[in-house]
Design a protein around this nucleic acid. Structure first.
Length: 593
RNA sequence: GCGCCCGUAGCUCAACCGGAUAGAGCAUCCGCCUUCUAAGCGGACGGUUGCAGGUUCGAGUCCUGCCGGGCGCGCCA
């Protein structure tokens, strides 16, 4: 089963080959001129250039070869040599039946499934997630779902930031604030085991405490060398598994994870792995020894580095700092160890890092080091960067007070706005409280996610909650509305005993809807190849719009039985594909609105 | 200073290895609810694709320079 674009492409490519032109030039694309055709091929122009012939002559020969194809109702040459293809209504109808019968709504799977890790989210222990984590989570989740849906074996890893200097800072800060905890840490350091239960004194530490203490401790560490040195020592104690520090750290990790899970859950984001920096701690020492044995480490300014600059680089890329002048591992060291760990436990064909674009150089350096070390081969590691989320002033998003907005607060703001919009529209008032809340939550998440995913990830975008939560135009709520409208229609049809049947394509709105349904696989493939969910977001919007036009132009339940059956099939296929596309974006649809 | 990304309608964004008349949404204006959810549909208005060159039959797309903006550039992550 193949979409029309591909099926026709094969026919046109064969026709190109028959006239002695390179077949790949016969590529077919949706028409730029829907008034003239459904699909087009521009290959005759390029072929003419290569063969030194007249493009219209080549086009004419191709058209001749395609003339008998029963799937086409018209094949014409236009302009300088465009080949315009119009698909026969019967062909569209059978393609629509095919999509309607397909649980995957017309989407293919990859020919050769791969093992893929998607590294995204990037939450840190002790630091609540803020708006900066929103894009990583939303985009990474969607990429993960898209890869999995296409047939790859995929693991999503939160890659917890749980093992660095900030942990030492916090351990010190918490001990300073609470003498009981300090005493307990000392006692456990002296005579405890890392797997001992968390003592009551530690259990009172909350995320709010950590959140309050961290910025203070970080600032103090910057200006006070003694404070910093102690934090570093505590970091070393933690990394050396001294029981008091380690158990206190377990408490930090536990309270953080509860909050993170709440935030992620509210966003419809879930991970297969909650691996963190601490998980590769044991690997670092042997890894450094191995890198040294391979002759990759160079002593430089008291640190140990790997030079990754290459011939032909446009500028000198800094080296990977493996061991600092103070003997500690840097974040690049951890990242390298993580690559090694993943190779050992999962052996991925591809690792996708969904992290802020600003980290591009860092990943380039780490990847090159990994290639040098033989932990991965060229192209196996890929950083997909994304732009920042800006305020309406065009600058990175801040709260009115100028601070960083917490992700949980952002989600709550979106929920509040969604409730307000629902009330404005007089919707859901007769629904039970719980269902109304569920709908408001789904509307809020759809608004946030669709706004984000409808932009290409590489560019920054302006966060404007009023615009995102609007129910008009190109928004998440609009898409939910369309899907819910189809659900309502299908419920009504069922109640009336109306059943679906073979598709008949007659009206132009029906043609357009079928052509849009057919384009799902192309959108999915593009999203997959480019790691760009916006291609899928675009498709979901187009499908909604095509359905809405169809809905307005073509009565369904009142139509005569054969037409009604056909239109119900189209509605059912639309719903399935739309829900599928939205699910791949991480957006779920309520039953009613 | 060096490097990367970006500059498209008043605003927010698209544009499929270079192709026909650069498309959507918002905003503004005009129509359409005794018919399946009008949170919808139809229509109008709106462009020297930052500027200047170049390659090409053909450039928003490729190359060069300039202007404007964002980001990054070893011991934080």
């Amino acid at each position: 089963m193949s979409d029309l674009k591909r099926a026709l492409g094969e026919a046109v490519e064969a026709a190109f080959a028959a006239v002695g032109a390179p077949p790949e030039l016969g590529r077919v694309t949706p028409s730029d001129r829907p008034d003239l055709a459904d699909f087009q091929s521009n290959g005759a122009l390029a072929a003419a250039k290569r063969l030194g012939k007249n493009p219209r002559e080549i086009a004419a020969a191709v058209v001749e070869a395609l003339a008998g194809d029963p799937r086409l109702s018209a094949v014409e040459i236009a302009g300088p040599g465009f080949i315009n293809l119009k698909v026969a209504d019967a062909t569209l109808a059978s393609r629509a039946d095919e999509v309607a019968d397909d649980p995957r709504a017309g989407a293919e799977t990859v020919a050769q499934p791969r093992r893929v890790i998607v590294d995204y989210g990037g939450p840190n222990v002790a630091k609540p997630m803020h708006v900066g984590h929103l894009r990583a989570s939303i985009i990474g989740e969607s990429v993960k779902r898209i890869y999995r849906f296409r047939g790859d074996t995929v693991a999503g890893d939160a890659h917890f930031g749980d093992w660095g200097y900030q942990m030492g800072l916090l351990i010190g800060a918490v001990m300073d604030e609470d003498a009981e905890i300090a005493a307990e840490v000392e006692a456990l350091n002296a005579a405890g085991g890392v797997d001992d239960p968390i003592p009551a004194a530690f259990a009172k530490v909350t995320l709010a405490d950590l959140d309050r203490l961290y910025p203070l401790a970080a600032a103090k560490g910057k200006e006070d060398p003694a404070y910093r040195d102690r934090a570093r020592k505590l970091t070393a104690d933690l990394q050396g598994h001294r029981a008091g520090c380690y158990i206190l750290w377990r408490q930090f990790r536990a309270v953080t994870q509860v909050a993170l899970e709440r935030d992620f859950h509210a966003l419809g984001v879930d991970f297969d792995w909650w691996k963190g920096e601490s998980d590769v701690d044991q690997l670092i020492e042997p890894m450094v020894a191995e890198l040294d044995a391979k002759g990759l480490l160079v002593d430089d300014q008291g640190a140990r580095i790997i030079r990754v600059a290459r011939e032909g680089d446009k500028r000198e890329l800094p080296p990977l700092l493996v061991v600092s002048s103070e003997g500690s591992a840097m974040y690049g060291t951890t990242d390298l160890a993580t690559i090694l760990d993943r190779k050992q436990v999962f052996d991925p064909d591809l690792v996708i890092y969904c992290v802020d674009q600003r980290q591009a150089d860092h990943f380039e350096i780490v990847f090159r080091a990994a290639y040098l070390a033989g932990y991965a081969h060229e192209g196996q590691l890929e950083h997909i960067g994304f732009g920042t989320m800006n305020g309406t002033d065009g600058k990175p998003f801040k709260t009115r007070e100028g601070g960083v907005l917490k992700l949980n607060d952002l989600i709550e703001m979106a929920r509040a706005k969604a409730r307000e919009r629902l009330h404005e529209a007089g919707l859901g008032e007769d629904l039970p409280e719980a269902e109304f809340e569920d709908i408001a939550g789904k509307v809020a998440v759809a608004a946030l996610k669709f706004a984000d995913l409808s932009n290409f990830r590489g560019t920054s975008y302006v966060f404007d909650l009023d615009r995102f939560t609007s129910f008009e135009g190109r928004t998440g709520p609009y898409l939910l509305y369309q899907a819910v409208r189809v659900k309502s229609l299908l419920r009504r049809a069922e109640g009336e005993g109306a059943t679906a049947g073979p598709v008949i394509v007659a009206e132009s709105a029906e043609r357009d809807l079928v052509l849009t349904l057919d384009a799902f696989d192309a959108a999915l493939t593009e999203a997959y190849d480019k790691k760009a969910p916006n291609a899928l977001a675009e498709h979901a919007y187009r499908l909604s719009q095509a359905f809405s036009k169809f809905y307005a132009a073509c009565p369904i339940l009142q139509a005569e039985p054969a037409i009604r059956a056909s239109r119900l099939t189209l509605a059912g296929a639309t719903l399935r594909q739309l829900e599928l596309a939205l699910d791949l974006l991480g957006i779920s649809v309520p039953e009613r609105m």
